[in-house]
Amino acid sequence: MIECRGICKSYERPGEPRLDVLKSVDLNIEPGEFTAVVGPSGSGKSTLMNILGLLDRPDSGNYLLGGEPVSNLPHARLASLRNKKIGFVFQQFHLLPRTTALENVELPLVYADTDNISDRAAQALCRVGLQDRMTHTPAELSGGQQQRVAIARALVNDPEIILADEPTGNLDRESGAGIMALFQELNESGRTIIFITHDAALAARAGRVLTMNEGILAEEPAQPVGGVA
């Protein structure tokens, strides 16, 4: 599903030495894997996520998404791939303000140019347990509910991969647990999920844990599931 070879990314900073964010990252992710990425702040987790999600381009290295090399595709093609193959969940939810849950979830479908937009968005909202909140705006929803709307939005186009950047970072423990349970459910129904977290307990619930440290990605040995709860 995802094959990365020698992905490098660095930033030029005026008056300071060049910052190497990703140092030759290799990564293979198989369909249906549930992967957590942990690591200290500034270690390059989000940059990796953005590259995997086609929001950013690596400086060098090869990235094959579903067997297709995507490093050098034009902008419009990347947008289309993001739309169809990838669902994003962000720490800050990034819902459109003053816009109903249903309309927020419709957004990827609007760009996909498909029919039955409202029906499909409503189904996605039911999937995350918000069938009673469709016409609520973000301001009328709790943090956990907002993140569920965001997950419904990530799901609505039926993408192969869901990328979540600290999806529980802005939530209290209880809501966070609910979101994790939802991710697990989605994974059990066959979806590939990669998420970033600071919380070792949450990471432990993933089938696979990757550690990012100063731009170097390392595999952690598998732990017994449920060992750290």
Binding site: A76, A79, S80, F88, Q92, L96, L107, Y111, A112, R153
Partner: peptide, 14 residues
Amino acid sequence: PEIGLRKAVGATDG
């Protein structure tokens, strides 16, 4: 953020 999000869910520059 809205622009970023629209791009993330598949909006092209155009």
